[in-house]
């Protein structure tokens, strides 16, 4: 595996479906980081992940993973990548012990001891059929399997969706441990922004098949702000500064994308910090400009 700076490099990728287009998307996931891939349902997160894994074919653009082209070096890449989906991809009549034997044949670097240690840590039974597992247990099992063959890149598609906060936190802790090795990276797709707020180094917003924002999570949150003002006052804010405006019974909340500039420009107005969730909400409604 060659030396690389970005674990994932997507450049100008397009995929057309009837009724949906992933439109010329580009973003990078730096090596050693967690990239939060944020967007509402149907925004194009899963399509992007499928393209990364070659589960579907792109119409145009280039994708590099671990420094290699994902079409030309598919098997070389996939030996170093783990994907976790929201549904368990294993037959439900199997149990963890049997799965370990099967996966040891599929992954060259399968580590049975690591897998067993994750089973113990997650308190997953070895001889119980997966059909008797809860959703949380199934997700933990997938993560245990994903982390037991020395993968350098973990791709998670809505992996924490539908799990209770305790399990979600447990899983996020595991991710942080995984990233102790600076060669490891994670792409974590989710619409639960609070999870990403906790662990992500980078964020990419996608909506209707287009990338809206990509960059450092801290910078993204710091650069954005919400100006709270009366409905009439927001008319005085330049439209080029505004992402969109939420009208409430008490006034208007205006999302701006350059906090420092706006602090100087609109010093008389209240400018509050914002969150990833708010940024997502305001960006998703950017075409309406005003919404309630």
């Amino acid at each position: 595996m060659s030396e690389y700076k970005n674990a994932i490099e997507i450049s100008g990728v397009t995929k057309k479906y009837d009724g949906f287009t992933l439109d010329n998307i580009s973003f990078n996931v730096p090596k050693g980081s967690i990239m939060g891939f944020i967007g509402q349902n149907g925004a194009g997160k899963t399509t992007t992940i499928k393209l990364l894994l070659n589960l579907i074919r792109k119409d145009s653009g280039t994708i590099k993973m671990l420094g290699l082209d994902n079409s030309e070096h598919e098997n070389e890449i996939k030996a170093q990548v783990s994907a976790v989906f929201d549904e368990l991809p294993f037959h439900e009549v199997l149990n963890a012990k049997q799965l370990s034997i099967i996966l040891s044949d599929i992954f060259e670097c399968w580590d049975r001891d690591t897998f067993n240690s994750y089973l113990d840590r997650f308190e997953l039974p070895r001889k119980k059929s997966f059909k008797d597992f809860s959703k949380g247990m199934k997700m933990k099992l997938q993560i245990a399997a994903a982390l037991s063959h020395g993968a350098k890149l973990l791709i998670m598609d809505e992996a924490t969706t539908g799990l209770d906060p305790v399990v979600r936190n447990e899983i996020l802790d595991i991710f942080m441990e995984y990233l102790q090795d600076e060669n490891n990276s994670i792409l974590l797709s989710s619409h639960i922004t609070t999870d990403l707020e906790k662990v992500a180094d980078m964020v990419t917003f996608i909506d209707k098949g287009k990338i809206l924002l990509t960059g450092s999570k801290d910078e993204t949150v710091e650069n954005h702000a919400v100006i709270k003002c009366k409905k009439d006052d927001y008319k005085g804010i330049d439209s080029e500064d505004i992402v969109s405006v939420r009208l409430t019974d008490f006034g208007a909340e205006v999302m701006v994308s350059d906090k420092k500039k706006c602090e100087k420009k609109y010093s008389g107005l209240v400018i509050d910090n914002t969150t990833l969730e708010e940024i997502m909400l305001f960006y998703v409604r950017r075409e309406k400009k005003e919404w309630k």
Partner: peptide, 13 residues
């Protein structure tokens, strides 16, 4: 069961 999709995410031919 999703097994074939899983296999497609691995290096198995």
């Amino acid at each position: 069961s999703g097994w074939l999709r899983f296999c497609k995410t691995t290096a198995i031919k």
